[in-house]
Nucleic acid binder design. Structure first.
Lengths: 209, 209
DNA sequence: TAGATTGTTAATCGATTAACAATC
DNA sequence: TAGATTGTTAATCGATTAACAATC
């Protein structure tokens, strides 16, 4: 079987729950306890671990610290993951300041924007002109980027990022990219997510009639 | 069959593509054209429409404007959807300023925060103290809210929102809420989304060895 | 009419859950 | 040993795709 986004999303949640358990002083955990903490079945937990070659002890459950180690490794927490971001607008800025990344081995090392007014080479996270992205990415061996630019320029920015060597993108522009064969794209679309809430709330409303 | 998040997300994308087609002067569309534009199969398109009672013409495809009308109705675009947001930090602010909502029948009508320094009753989007949320939501009959507060206060904020009458939440706090039986929650988790990109890029890297 | 496209049913694929033998 | 839990296989569930009769 092949690993899917759902698998990684669950591993991420297991990891988080395990840190909580560990802080509470627990040393081992059972699949049903962990499943309950994360909101999945015990079967799901064991199946997921099995897929990634993670083994527990019959009757003894899983050792929390070794489990965390394995998940750290799978999720790329052994090294700091360097990420760049293009588009220093509202969302770009929010992500740069997003605290959760810092403690999670994810570091936004630089931002890029076409607007010269946004450039700031001396900030905690330096912001460079977009045209410098190629050299920066090559020089620092960056493979992951975030797109947070307006729709109209998204394809153009995407092309530049790919040619610079970016292999994976977290994309906030509601766009289907052309030439996306050799790059992993993960889309986040606020409008779609909100429209889901709107639909299901309205459904519930009408159900009651 | 029951309607899922995936259905609504696809309808949202069909809708967007249809507006593009319409602007280009097209009046009808076939399931395979629309599918290609959105990145799904023609079967999927027809199945989706069928589920929502949307009918085309054998041999004649679907009339774009009536199709748009139906989707507008399903996705709640007949009326302006009023939304409140709690937590006026980086993400909260970014969402308030997010342009895409404005043209899409979604309006963030008010923000709430515990920090008195954030309060601003006269802004384009007024910001009120959190304690006023109950009265506001009741008075304006709001059912949808966004949570963009730090993890530690998220459950508390959630409880207040529910007691005020909120029925659907777009949630940015990486938290599983207690007492979430009668409310629709849609979670957005930047860390998990980025960890997915990291995992699949690293996989690709190691595959090449 | 011949050809093309819908709408729906059947087949396939994938993901989750249940069951249970292995075993600590 | 008896009881509990893993790890894996089988069963179920759900979502997507294929196929094709209906028909414009």
């Amino acid at each position: 079987m092949i690993v899917s986004k759902k698998h990684i999303s669950r591993l991420s949640k297991y990891r988080k729950a395990l840190f909580r358990f560990s802080e509470l002083g627990f040393v081992k955990v059972f699949s049903d306890t962990l499943g309950e903490a994360v909101g999945v079945t015990a079967s799901q937990v064991r199946k997921d671990f099995s897929l990634f070659g993670i083994h527990g002890h019959k009757r003894g459950g899983y050792q929390i610290d070794t489990l965390i180690d394995k998940l750290q490794n799978i999720l790329g927490k052994d090294f700091e993951q360097k990420v760049i971001i293009v588009g220093i607008g509202n969302i770009g800025n929010a992500l740069i300041k997003y605290k959760a990344f810092e403690n999670e081995g994810i570091k936004i090392v630089a931002g890029f924007d076409i607007d010269p007014a946004k450039v700031n080479r001396k900030g905690t996270v330096p912001i460079f002109p977009l045209k410098e992205i190629h050299d920066y990415v090559k020089k620092h061996n960056i493979t992951i980027g975030i797109i947070a630019v307006p729709d109209i320029v998204a394809q153009e920015v995407f092309d530049v990022m790919l040619s610079a060597g970016i292999k994976g993108i977290l994309n906030f522009a509601p766009i289907r990219y052309k030439g996306a064969e050799n790059v992993f794209i993960n889309n986040v679309n606020f409008q779609v997510e909100l429209e889901n809430v709107i639909y299901f709330v309205n459904m519930f409303k009408h159900e009651k009639d």
